[in-house]
Design a protein around this nucleic acid. Structure first.
Lengths: 338, 338
DNA sequence: CCTGATGACTTAAGCGCTTAAGAATCCTTC
DNA sequence: GAAGGATTCTTAAGCGCTTAAGTCATCAGG
């Protein structure tokens, strides 16, 4: 029941382990005949290389790391990560690379986890999500020279490749849509202000609204949670000149808004249009179903894995953009009340 | 910029690498003085053991595997896994053990992934979720003698330890609650019939209903998805003597029911009471908020990690039961119409 | 003072694989 | 027919760590 090693293959084939290694790795130095014999034996006894051994000599861990920094209870409802991970996997499994997942409480713990993971040589590279405007992980990645790919737009403060989607364009499209419906007072409930993409979206939103000559729009910042979505919506709807449309930075908060509106007697979509910043089953589950910015998260994961693999192999892939989100119109948006 | 090794520590401390190894592992054979010196140096140069090297000699990978078999798009909305993983991590990180996550399409692929993962010596053990009544993974685990823990009740077909929650008791409690409210026609929308816990819950449900002298109850089987939740609800509500209460096997389907009911003009909870089988933010997000069976998934993860660690260390921990789900009453249940 | 135990190390083998360097064989080529 | 070059292997070192076995003081007991 011992797991077979190349030594066993070598013994059976009557050659040295060196020859076996060459054969199995498709390198020159063995005749076609011998190679076939070795491969056949390996196949027969079900041999698989020990990652530990390969890592030790080849100095490759054959794994990549993903560290998610979120308080545990916020996790789960956000469908983003599971989709993204599924995408990563789809690409990684073909490359015989494993995904090491870590869930930690906060940014600080994430950096510690990163350092540890790297020091223990557990991974060859890392996927960095939830980028902050000022992100303390970047200098650490550079200091330790960790191959990594940023899930977010390319940054001036690093050479690290990024995989990104044109958030700005998507936000602009949504604003254009609302304006075309006749809305003049459009507000935004943004996510964590420390996150880079939050800022990008806010900026795009402002520009779009100003571009339509609608004056400085209102933007409320939150932490992406259900609770803050409720709070923000309440704040916005309690004002005198309350907005006729609100764009939310994710689907969870948009759902929260639905409840607040009901509670406050604000009809949706007749008195208030709502756009969710992420699309997921959640948007279809609620009534009215939510108009949302929909993007292919799994494809995002696939691309990310590819760029990371290239980075690890020193093929410096450069940043890559994936398709822009598209607006899926459902029942939560319509023209504003006369 | 090279990562430090024990050889460097040995050189600096003026001792052999053997001594360093003993000191760092807290084993006898070095004086307190020398030990302190070594530890200080290790700390100073930021040494961390290379997992690869430890794995090779110690024959421990210091990782455990979790393989999730779900079509990618079903993933995400179900908050279960993220919570569960967060629980696993909380326990594992303290044990310097990493979590290797794999997401595959189906059961068959899961078995392949298991075999590969084990053959490559990537993990020391595995967490097995979504157990089937007849589960092809069990014989494989036994054949390869893979340490594993089953997330589900102990089984007669294996010695593998299980971490489980008393699903039956929870279901019975929910039925009792509905009966106490006055319901006499209670139906159940169950999850995947191939899954073991689905069967357990169905059996408990039947028994409870029969025990109250309410006759054979109606049970519809589904795949846990939103779509089938809709379909099942439609089926149940289109009958002549339609149920006055329905218990769903998860939160997603219960949410779907809310929509179907609205669509069919069935008032909730006045004309139909709904109980969700899982609790999550989702249950609070919808209107009316859903009465649900709530259980501490994170704690489940923690216990699972513990039992797995013990299994790996050969401390044959035996199965462990975690706290039973409790019924959280919200707005979706009330007495049946007169 | 010698014996035997104990403590504090060192030595060296080994985990399973990669890979540079060496050896043996065969084929060219002038 | 000898030198040079391929081709096909073997040898052995090394990756960073663990650990059984060996060495050498030191010290208590008789």
């Amino acid at each position: 029941m011992k797991r077979p090693t190349i030594a066993e293959i070598a013994a059976r084939a009557g050659v040295s382990i060196g020859a076996v290694s060459y054969a199995l790795n498709g390198r020159p130095g063995v005749s076609a005949e011998t190679r076939k014999l070795i491969l056949d034996i390996a196949d027969e006894i079900g041999w698989r290389p020990s990652v530990a051994a390969r890592s030790l000599s080849g100095s490759r861990a054959h794994s990549v790391g993903l560290i998610i920094a979120r308080p545990a209870d916020t996790l789960g409802v956000e469908p983003f990560f599971m989709r993204f991970i599924a995408g990563l996997e789809r690409e990684l499994s073909g490359r015989r690379t494993a995904l090491l997942l870590q869930v930690v409480e906060d940014h600080h713990a994430a950096i510690e986890a990163m350092r540890l993971c790297w020091a223990e040589r557990r991974v060859d590279g890392m996927v960095i999500t939830d980028l902050w405007t000022e992100d303390a992980r970047i200098p650490v990645l550079e200091e330790l020279q960790i191959p990594a790919v940023l899930v977010g737009r390319p940054r001036p403060d690093t050479e690290l490749p990024a995989v990104w989607t044109d958030d700005a364009a998507a936000v602009v499209a949504a604003v254009d849509y609302l304006v075309a419906l006749g809305h003049r007072r459009i507000a935004r409930v943004a996510g964590l202000p420390a996150l880079e993409h939050t800022q990008v979206r806010i900026a795009a939103f402002r520009q779009a609204v100003l571009g339509h000559g609608l004056g400085e729009p209102q933007v409320v910042e939150t932490d992406y949670s259900w609770e803050e979505g409720m709070r923000a919506t309440r704040t916005l709807l309690s004002q005198r000149d309350r907005p006729t449309a609100i764009m939310f930075d994710n689907d969870v908060m948009a759902t929260a808004a639905l409840n607040v509106a009901q509670e406050m007697g604000v009809a949706i979509p007749d008195e208030l249009s709502i756009v969710a910043g992420d699309d997921s089953q959640l948007c279809v589950m609620v009534r009215p179903a939510l108009t949302a910015l929909s993007w292919d998260i799994q494809a995002y994961g696939v691309q990310t894995a590819r760029v990371l693999a290239d980075t690890i192999d020193d093929r410096s892939p450069g940043s890559r953009q994936v398709s822009t989100a598209s607006l899926v119109v459902r029942a939560s948006t319509t023209s504003p009340p006369a």
